[in-house]
Design a protein around this nucleic acid. Sequence first.
DNA 1: CGTTGGATTGGCT
DNA 2: GCCAATCCAACGC
Length: 191
Amino acid sequence: MARLTRAFFARSTDVVARDLLGCRLVRRYADGSIEMGRIVETEAYPPGDPSSHAFKGQTARCRSMFARPGTVYVYRIYGAYFCLNIATEPEGVGAAVLVRGLDEVDGCNGPGRLCRRLAIDAALDGVDALARGGPLQILGAAARSSESLVTTTRIGLSKATDWRLRFYLLGSPGVSKRDREAERAAAPPGS
DNA sequence: CGTTGGATTGGCT
DNA sequence: GCCAATCCAACGC
């Protein structure tokens, strides 16, 4: 499994969101132990998106979205949960991909459950997901996925609800919410 | 199966 | 105050 490059994350947010499917998320704990899962569901929050935290400019909360690509952005949601994102686009541009689901490890379907399961909280905000030996690292896909790619609308928003910026691998148990309609138009592998 | 409401806290108006 | 890139338990059918 190859390490990813800074340039991988510097591209368009929707492209990064698609290409992260099949990549491995590595969680390295303070005692040195690790857990690893495969990313199977993502959402893009590109520049100019009215539902993005970065839409109205940089604030203390979302500053990691403007940091160099590959920076981890973690925020608290609904008081009780955290969501994990990775900054995209060139440094200074506020954009990120939300990681919504993993498989190969149980209990990581949905962004809140994923963070709870892997002990991801605000302490990890701002770390570099490209750093070897860091608490959170993303590795390239081992092989091209044999699953179809489903493109559909994002979850839980009140703005831009028709933007098709959620992506998932058809058939994975790590997917939080399926869209049967979109699955009929799913892109087969390699397309 | 579907829908509904409560939990819980930081950021913004 | 109000509300959020969520989750879960409790209902009704």
